[in-house]
Amino acid sequence: MRKIIFILVLFNISVAYALDDYVFESGHGSLSKWTLPEEVPFPENNRPTQARVDLGKALFFDPRLSGDGNMSCASCHNPMLGWSDGLKTAKGHKSQILGRATPTIINTAYNSIQMWDGRKASLEDQATGPLEAEVEMHMDIESLISWLNNNEIYRKKFNLAYPGEGVSATTLSKAIASYERTIISRNSPFDNWVEGNKSALTESEIAGFKLFVDPEKGNCEVCHSAPNFTDNGFHNVGLELVLDGDSDFGRYKIISLSSLKGAFKTPTLRDISYSAPYFHDGSSHTLEQVVKHYVDGWKGAENLSLNIKEISLTESEIVDLTAFLNALSSPKEALVLPELP
């Protein structure tokens, strides 16, 4: 006989983000959830190989992939600017100003959903989006594939990377995605401190980390969660939704649920010090401004994420929290540009 009430799963009372879960000592096991997996996730049909990464790198930096032959992926995702562009919002085809800031592609390989509004599920899905977009790289994909096929060196590279798959929009996407999976930050002072290097963080940076994870203080971890400082979620954090007469409701355009009006994807904070300005609208120029936004900048906004709540930080605490955010950047490494076929 079936019972009237059947409890499928017992209630587990442990708390996901309790401050008590942490011991703030370098190398302590309670910090291990912040260590990014060494192996970067990839789909089974696009296992990374050197040939795929090399091809993807050439494509990523090749301006001939745009309609006017003057924009590459790296024009907006510039490695010298934190794989973003340093602009408030991006500039696209013929320098027209676009509606959103260029998101960094640092560690996006670890993310389960792509773009500010999550309209692309994977790096493979995403790769040709900007390339074909009329307002971005403005490229006709059929013409591009034809051009790549007629370029002997590119054709060889595609055959080496994807034997038997040919030159196509699919292999083009897969190659670019393979290169993007090499753009990783996991060697920051914070990472080193988590691994056991006691001197990797200053007292102020450690104090900032405590504020970051404290739900009653910074309350940052609730969205910028471990290990990649993002919950891969969508939140309205109280920014202006209508700018210069144009409205941007973010995720709501993709899924029309009222709670998503004005919600944008939580960005990673790794290498954050390299990719100012901040937020999807580029409205904050410094990390200190970002922190202050969460103190009182959001007040009065409608349809806020319920994760946003009243917090109180002293000037000294704002300094500590900002110092911690700056400690999330890995040392810059020299980048060797590809020789274009």
């Binding site: 079936r2 019972k3 009237i4 009430i5 059947f6 409890i7 499928l8 799963v9 209630f11 587990n12 996901a16 969660s225 919950d231 979620g233």
Partner: peptide, 16 residues
């Protein structure tokens, strides 16, 4: 007698 109640938890950003 025949209606059942099931519980699905949301924990660690996942359904149980």
């Amino acid at each position: 007698a025949y209606a059942q109640n099931f519980v699905v938890n949301q924990k660690g950003l996942a359904f149980s």
